[in-house]
Structures are given as C-alpha cells and as structure tokens.
Design a protein around this nucleic acid. Sequence first.
DNA 1: CGACTCTTTGAATTTTGTCAAACTGAGTGG
DNA 2: CCACTCAGTTTGACAAAATTCAAAGAGTCG
Lengths: 248, 248
Amino acid sequence: MADSSFHDIAVLITKLESTLRLTDAERHALERLPMQVQALRADQDIVRVGDQPSRSCLVLSGYTATYKMTGEGKRQIHAWHIAGDIPDLQSLHLKVMDNSIITLTPCRVGFITPEHLRELCRAQPRLMEVFWRQTLIDGAVYREWVTNVGQREAYNRMAHLLCEWMTRVRAVGLNEGDACELPMTQSELADALGITTVHANRVLQKIRGDGLIALTGSRLEILDWEQMKQAGDFDPLYLHQNPAEAAA
Amino acid sequence: MADSSFHDIAVLITKLESTLRLTDAERHALERLPMQVQALRADQDIVRVGDQPSRSCLVLSGYTATYKMTGEGKRQIHAWHIAGDIPDLQSLHLKVMDNSIITLTPCRVGFITPEHLRELCRAQPRLMEVFWRQTLIDGAVYREWVTNVGQREAYNRMAHLLCEWMTRVRAVGLNEGDACELPMTQSELADALGITTVHANRVLQKIRGDGLIALTGSRLEILDWEQMKQAGDFDPLYLHQNPAEAAA
DNA sequence: CGACTCTTTGAATTTTGTCAAACTGAGTGG
DNA sequence: CCACTCAGTTTGACAAAATTCAAAGAGTCG
C-alpha cells in the first residue's frame, strides 16, 4: 500500500478528458485527491455483495469485473472495468453493495473515501456532473447488456461483446490498431453472456472460423470490423463516447 | 395539455419521501417546479432512440416501459415505470436517447425541462443527491435484470419479475394486500424476460398451476409469497428501498 | 517434470423457439 | 342486442439452440 501520486490519478484525468476538457482548477483538485494505492493479485474480490464499503476504488491498471451470484450458484458478470474506471462509484449514494467486484488480472487500484469524493464534487460542481454522467453511462451499458443477453443468439451476443470491448479499450488508447488484450477467460466471457463455457468456446471457434477475429492467448484482433459490427448488431451510441455531446 | 398543479407533483413527493424525509423548503421547491401535464393513450411512444429530448417526463398515473429494438426487429424491455418515476432522468446529462419509452396503459405524464430540473438541483442540493441516487438505483435494477435474463430459467425468471413488480408497486401503495394490477401483456412480459410470448404463456400457466399466483385479466395476486421468493431467487436488496439507509 | 487452469471436442438431453391454429373477451357499429 | 373485429391468450407438434456430462489436449508456472 502506498500514498497517492500525480502519476496514479493520471488515468482518471485522461478518461475524463476524453469526454470533457478540464480546467486547471479541476485538474489540480483531482491531483490533490487523497488516494491509497494498492496492488492486487488476479481473482481477488475487492468488495462483496452486502458490504458497506468505506471507500470507492479507481482502477489504475489491470482489469476488473462486477458480478453477482444467483441462489443456484451461477455467476452473472455485469460489466468490465479498465484503467480510469470507478467500478463502485454507486457507493457514493447507495450504502450497501448489491454486487461484488473481482480482479480479472493483477491490478493496481486507488482507494478514495466518499468524504473526499463528496468534497471534490462540492468544490468542483462540473466534476460532479461528470461523475453523475458516468454513472448514467454505466446504466446505458447495462441496458444494452440486457438487450444483448435477452434478444440475441450466442454467436451474435459474443460478437457484440467483442465489439464493445474493442471500442472501449480504443477510447483509452489500450489498443494497437485493431488488436488489444482480452484479459477474461472463456468462462468469464460465458458468465457475462449468460451461456455455458462450452458454448462460449463453440461460438468463439465459429467466429474465428468465419474469419472475423483472431484470438490467441489473451490477444484479440478484429480482422473484419464491418462483419463484426453486423454480426453483433453493434451501434456504439449507447456508450455515449462522443466528446462533443458531453461539452453541453 | 394543462399546466402544473400541486396535485400532480404529489406522486413525486410521495415517492421521494418514501426514502427520505423532505424539508418544507424542498417540498415547496418541488411544488413550484413548472410542469406540462399531458394525457396519453396506451401504446404510444413518449421518446424514441436517437431523440435529443428537450424535456424529461414524470409518470403521474398509468404505466410505461423503456425498450430497445435489435437489428432483427426483436424488442427488449429494460424497465417498467409507475407513478412517481422519471423514466428519462438520464437525459439530464446524456443528450441522445439510447432507448425508447412507451406507454403500457393510458397515462398522465408531466413534462419538465432540464433547465428547471437543473435549477432545482442547484437550489436544493439534497434533492440533486436524491435524483442521482435514483439513477443509481435504476442501474442496480438493470444489473439484476441482466442476472435474471442471463442466469435463470424462464420459470424462475418470470417469478422474479413478478416478485419485483409486487415489491415496487407495494412501495408506492398501489397494491391491495398481496394483489395488484399487472398492466403488461404476456407479450410485453416475454420481451422483458428475453423469451417468446408462447413460452411466457407456458411458464405463467405453470406458476399458476403450482398455486403460487392467481392471474385473471390484469389482476395479479401472489398466493404463496414464500415459494415465489424462492422460485424467483428474489432478494429485494438491489431495490435499495430501505428508507433508513437513504437518510445518510 | 508435474500440477494447475484453461481450452477444445463429442454425444445425449433439455430448454426454448417456431409455426400454425383455435379460443377468449372486450369493444364497435349496424 | 347481436354479429364482427381485433388484440390477447392458449394449445399442439416439431425444430433449433443451448446445456450437460465426460474426457482429452494445450499452455503456464513453480
């Protein structure tokens, strides 16, 4: 565990600036935000259902996911998080966690107390709007996931997930052209899509066989973006990434 | 179309007071909120995907739902709304609608401009927190829906939906004991659960046959709440209804 | 090398979807 | 008041999608 530093908070500033130009005052307020940095191994729960966390976490590097277990022991993953994301920003106004958060890879995360976040929001009302906006985008993504899981067949569901992943990763510059890291196992992909691991494997094989992607180890490359968008019925509107629209 | 009145905004005040005691100043600010009241027929779109709405809508009476169409013409319903809900509160910070909203029954809705809502939030910061919190709860419900559609079989999915419905309706007093109105058709239930209408009918028959509910016309009665909770794997934590916890 | 986890494959089974048609009940207009 | 319409519900037979169970490869790390 270590103290906050300018370098650590940079991922958050980068993320926020991707949709909104920050003022110097806002940037400085963010840089002064007290944060406890911690390194975590893969497959570790950061918070669990029922927790009343005393701090929020900012992903500095690595990847995490939120999930929930059903009474029958099945796991549903609701979201992936990458550098700059705050997976439990909801705990700013909801006292009890209704989902768990787990690291998919080794991670560095920064813990921020709600008091400091509130203070920041009070001092910089525009940042508050940006945070609120971010939670609304999270909601928009959940809506799309409901649609994906509810209405599309497994093949198209997987294609949609991969399109979304590439689009989000690209927005924060973690891509190399049409290639990027795909840090989740097929079992985790399956739990995000509401299908079994076996079936996830089969549809991945099919998408590969159709020449739409290359997937070796944890490296994903989209070979035919047009066909992928079509297969996944992917329209990035719901990600609300357009910076122009955010400037309002 | 008619002007705002104290009576119309009452449903919102009731809803907000169910999780938080309002001050007189807050109540008065709400009562002064300009609102255009409109009566709508059933099955009418209030807003559509791609719209950049110039006003948010508050459901005064009747029921609405948000939904999205896939490229293949399938419809996914993400949420139901009842009196006191603001289905497109998201448009306060997201300029483009990524979902449509439709009336399930004849409705009275009140339209409020984002400017007036912003003004209200500025003047009454605690109300802003309440609205933000409400959007976070919407997100929590989406997460549960992803889980429901992704991990549970049709029978349990339906049971879960009915448990949630009764719990929400009860919170605003639209129930009569363990009975209430169920204003959506089986086709709409199916589109919310990610199953076909035929299959929705079959699982409803089964739930009835098992003696868990009575369903005649649009009147739902839960006959065996314990077994329903178990069948639906229903834990209301995600609805964050506990008023005590909201008072923080 | 050995112990893992993760991926891949095959065969049988279950759940759910598709198609088609009949039934029901609440209006509507003659 | 009775046919008629129309949306919504119900049923049956068949097809497709996805799961389950079981086991074999592949890759990685100590």
